[in-house]
């Protein structure tokens, strides 16, 4: 219980830091909007369900990769040492992943709303779609956070974490886009199955991160 409370405190702390700096959250939101407008300029409004879903998830995935790759880049050596003594590695990765999952779940929903306004929504089941967007963004964010940790320990920037993370995000992308297609076509029960699959994938990624992160963080 104490453990969970510490992690929650840390998530709140990250949120406060985010609000104080502002550049991060503004950048993430602007990234979604810019990509959206560019896609809209290039393709225009899409009616075909599969293309619509594909475009939505490409935009969401890239914005998640972009914002979660910052997860471990902000602190200098001094803060790293502080973190090292303050939190156990498992607690740190859970807090970071949790924070990124919430942050990207929210920005994903915002991005989805803007996407819906620009492109229109070619079907029903918006509520389920919002759930899928939040769950898919959160799953990708958990993975992206871990890749950011790897890239930061490797002393490498955001480019590496995208190369490492994108291939591994494909199961998430497949489940999320399949679920969204079913959802728009009215197959809510199938969409629920894919939502459950996304949650399972997230659980898998978080537990792998919890097990493996201590080995990254030991020096």
């Amino acid at each position: 219980m104490n453990n969970l409370r510490l992690i929650w405190t840390w998530i709140q702390h990250e949120w406060r830091m985010e609000l104080r700096q502002k550049a991060g959250i503004q950048g993430a939101l602007l990234y979604v909007v810019v990509t959206l407008v560019v896609a809209y300029q290039a393709i225009g409004a899409v009616q075909d369900i599969e293309t619509w879903v594909g475009l939505l998830w490409i935009i969401l995935l890239f914005s998640v990769v972009n914002s979660s790759s910052r997860a471990f880049s902000a602190e200098g050596t001094g803060k790293k040492i502080l973190l090292y003594f303050w939190l156990k590695p498992g607690q740190l990765i859970l807090a970071r992943m949790g924070y990124q999952m919430m942050f990207n779940g929210l920005t994903g929903i915002m991005g989805f709303s803007m996407f819906g306004i620009l492109m229109g929504i070619p079907g029903n089941g918006v509520g389920m779609l919002v759930l899928l967007v939040a769950a898919g963004s959160a799953a990708a964010a958990a993975l992206g956070t871990f890749m950011a940790a790897i890239a930061s320990v490797a002393g490498n920037g955001a480019g590496l974490s995208a190369v490492l993370g994108l291939p591994l995000m494909v199961p998430t992308l497949m489940a999320a886009s399949k679920g969204s297609i079913f959802c728009l076509q009215g197959g809510i029960s199938q969409a629920q199955m894919y939502l459950a699959m996304l949650l399972l994938l997230t659980t898998l990624v978080v537990s792998l991160g919890y097990i493996l992160f201590p080995y990254l963080w030991r020096d």
Binding site: I150, V153, L160, L168, L208, L216
Partner: peptide, 30 residues
Amino acid sequence: VLRSSISDARKRAEISAVYGIFAFVLMVVL
């Protein structure tokens, strides 16, 4: 690419082992 981007041998071994395990599990899922 990850391996070749790290010059310190011990660090490279640790990081690539972690990524290798992570990637393998997700590959099995996939």
